[in-house]
Simulated scan of single mutants.
Amino acid sequence: MTSIAFYGSSILSAYWNGAATYYRGMLRALAAEGYAITFYEPDVLDRQNNRDIEPPSWCDVVVYDGTVEGLKAAAARAAEADIVVKASGVGFEDDLVLAEVMKAARPDALRIFWDVDAPATLAEMQTAPDHPLRRTLPDLDLVLTYGGGDPVVSAYRDLGARECVPIYNALDPDTHHPAPPQERFRGDLAFLGNRLPDRDARVEEFFLRPAKQTPEARFLLGGSGWDAYPLPRNVHLLGHVRTADHNALNCTPRMVLNVARDSMAKNGYSPATRVFEAAGAGACLITDAWEGIELFLEPGEEVLVARDGEDVAEILKTLPDDAPQQIGARARARVLAEHTYADRAKQADALFRAHAPRLEAAS
């Protein structure tokens, strides 16, 4: 059985960790394809005290000390794997993780950098010719990203990557699906997202501005970091929402909102995990406009696209009562047919085999 050593932020906790849903969906689906996976995550940022899943059956999880010694011990185990993956945004000594993991990898191992925030990573490398990842790119077999179209692929190749391929976010229908509504989540529009510097202005425009323009409507704001943020009176703060409650949050309000970060919107082709979570639950989703949305959901039929806060307010005021349910049902059908993690895992499996033909013989 082909083994994967995957070094990332956390698979056990979604606390300040937007990649958790992606990791879980992708690795669970890769396990179903026959891979033996070990996920290595550091004990940092209080994530282990905020776990929202138990260690899964489809993946071994190694939680290592948030120290240099703990990091090096975990990195040394990369020598055991056929495929070695270093993800972006581990959250502790990322450059050292990259160096130690790739140093430990066997000469015949497939070496991959998996970027879960390509715009941020590329911005760092483009302004730093001596960036550790930039120096390492020519020695890696493959760069995978969870978003970004041609601009991201071209940028990575220009910086020295042999090949860059997007493996987009998707739906795991076993974890994100329709669920009974919960009274605490009743409202007209819900937005779930941690507060991040490069998203504040867009949250102001697409969420808080329509809240001010429709004071009779009830808005719900979930995620960490919003406690001290000035909010209109009709915006109700939920705080951190556990992954187990995401389905109810998507199913209860009339509509849910996706707001991309500035860099993701600029690059386009970067649907957030929330897009597929909401669609999988059959929610009526409003998203801010970004290039490439039509590759995933059809605007006007399976998703509502807003150019600004005025559009969001107009949708809230004029959308017929029966339309949200119909839009949500069409979105769910589309993602189940074309955008599950099982689909993405087959794409990743084909890439692994293309770049390491010996894996075919070993399987």
Rank of each mutant, 00 (worst) to 15 (best):
L159M: 15
Q182I: 04
P178I: 08
F185H: 04
P166V: 06
I167P: 03
N169L: 12
A161R: 02
P178D: 09
R186A: 08
P178Y: 15
H177G: 05
E183Y: 06
C164F: 03
L159V: 05
H176T: 01
H177I: 05
V152C: 15
F185Q: 02
R162H: 09
L159P: 08
D158G: 12
V152W: 04
P173V: 12
F185N: 01
P181M: 05
N169E: 10
A155E: 01
N169P: 08
V153D: 01
V165P: 00
H176Y: 15
P181R: 06
Y156E: 00
A161H: 08
P166G: 07
N169D: 10
R157A: 07
H177R: 11
G160H: 10
E183D: 12
D174G: 15
V152Q: 08
E163V: 01
D174I: 12
E183K: 10
A170N: 14
V165Y: 00
L159N: 08
Y156K: 09
P181A: 03
L159G: 12
P151D: 04
Y168V: 13
P178W: 15
Q182S: 06
R157G: 04
R186N: 05
V165R: 06
V152L: 14
L159A: 10
P180L: 08
P180M: 09
A179W: 13
A155T: 05
R162N: 08
C164Y: 02
Y156D: 02
P151I: 00
E183T: 07
P173G: 12
P173N: 13
R157I: 02
A155H: 11
H176M: 10
E163Q: 02
A179N: 03
S154H: 14
R186G: 08
D172M: 14
H176E: 04
S154F: 10
A161G: 01
P180R: 09
Y168W: 11
A155V: 01
A161D: 00
V153S: 02
R184S: 09
G160Q: 05
P173Y: 13
R157N: 07
P166C: 09
P151Y: 03
R184K: 15
L159D: 05
F185A: 01
Q182H: 12
V152D: 04
V165A: 01
A161K: 07
P181G: 02
V153W: 01
F185S: 01
A179F: 13
A170H: 07
P166L: 09
L171V: 13
L171W: 05
A161Y: 06
P173H: 06
E163T: 02
I167S: 09
D174R: 11
R162D: 06
P178G: 12
H177W: 15
V152E: 04
P180E: 12
V165H: 01
E163G: 03
G160L: 04
E163H: 05
